[in-house]
């Protein structure tokens, strides 16, 4: 199942990107090869050729409509720029695309040409006024896909490396608790619930203790502590696994509990609401609690039911 969805995300992603790029080429969505007529509004007078000055480039709305045929907002656009004239009729400008009122399409063009929010154009003066030429923009989405894939590959490693410290801390503390017999106590205490959830785990197995720690930390919103407990639980569950590389029923039930986990305080969502100026940021506590409680009950039930479905059955699953 995971195999198919994983592949589907990649295939759908690349095909969509290619499709959009082909559409953009056929429609010439970026107005490639058509010069831009614009006005230079310069608060500083241009005194010396070759010296950059701050200016504002005014792009009339007719020009925007001419280049971006499918563009909905047609207003005059003013973009701050550093203008350098090499002759009276020649020069170039570096446009600052980071401003809020710059149309999205320009930002996409700047990004596609690799300018980090800056777009360089060549300027030429002719009978009709100033004319700007922008390098042709193409294959925007395929380039985006490529960059995203490379960037996230690095981010993924950073996330994993970032786990090392917190993992070491909690696994160390857990080891002490385990040696002292605490985890076994905890497991025995929760026995009435855990025997039903995880019938194939011995009642005082350390995995039960770790899973309880993980779920409790999750409920309190302590994500940093929850992950080490959870990974420890997975290791202990794997000790009982007779087919290495295949998920056991208990692992799936545990992850069902984990991903749908009952939320007492959705801290991040409340913080974002408060930052966005909500008059009652905490209003979602009740709704999140009830929604996650419902999801948890269903998740456990679904995990038990799907375990009996032919394609997922334990006795039919092999490690590839």
């Amino acid at each position: 199942m995971l195999n198919h969805i994983w592949l589907a995300l990649i295939v759908i992603g690349i095909l969509t990107a290619a499709g959009r790029d082909i559409y953009d080429v056929t429609q010439n969505s970026y107005g490639n090869g058509v010069p831009w007529m614009l006005q230079i509004e310069s608060p500083e007078s241009i005194e010396a050729y070759g010296e950059p000055v701050n200016a504002v480039l005014l792009i009339p709305r007719r020009q925007i409509a001419l280049h971006f045929k499918d563009f909905s907002e047609h207003v005059d656009v003013r973009i701050p720029a550093r203008v350098t004239l090499t002759h009276a009729t020649d020069g170039f400008a570096v446009l600052d695309m980071s401003g809020g009122d710059v149309p999205e399409r320009f930002k996409v063009m700047a990004a596609a040409l690799g300018g980090e929010g800056m777009l360089t154009v060549r300027l030429r003066h002719n009978a009709a006024g100033w004319e700007a030429a922008i390098d042709p923009v193409s294959l925007v989405y395929l380039k985006k896909v490529t960059n995203a894939a490379f960037d996230i590959a690095g981010v993924a490693v950073q996330i994993a490396i970032g786990l090392i410290g917190i993992m070491a801390l909690w696994l160390g503390v857990m080891k002490v608790a385990e040696k002292a017999g605490l985890i076994t106590h905890l497991a025995r205490f929760m026995r009435p619930i855990t025997v039903r959830l995880f019938p194939d785990i011995p009642v005082d197995h350390p995995a039960v203790g770790s899973m309880i720690m993980n779920i409790s930390a999750n409920m309190l919103g302590l994500g940093n502590a929850a992950t080490p407990f959870g990974l420890k639980a997975m290791e202990e569950l794997d000790e009982l696994n007779t087919k290495k590389g295949v998920a056991t029923d208990s692992m799936v039930t545990f992850l069902a509990l984990n991903t749908s986990c009952i939320t007492l305080i959705p801290a991040t969502a409340i913080a974002v609401r408060a930052a966005a100026g909500s008059s009652d940021p905490a209003i979602i506590i009740g709704t999140s609690f009830l929604a996650s409680l419902t999801a948890t009950i269903f998740a456990v039930t679904i995990s038990k039911l799907l375990a009996r479905v032919k394609m997922f059955r334990w006795d039919r699953s092999e490690a590839e």
Partner: peptide, 27 residues
């Protein structure tokens, strides 16, 4: 799923993904 199964080298995740996604849908 990637982190937890990755930690113990599980490649065949069986019904874990459909369970997780159905639970999300219910949520």
């Amino acid at each position: 799923l990637a982190v937890y199964f990755g930690a113990v080298g599980i490649r065949n995740t069986r019904h874990a993904l459909p369970t997780g996604l159905l639970a999300d849908f219910i949520a």
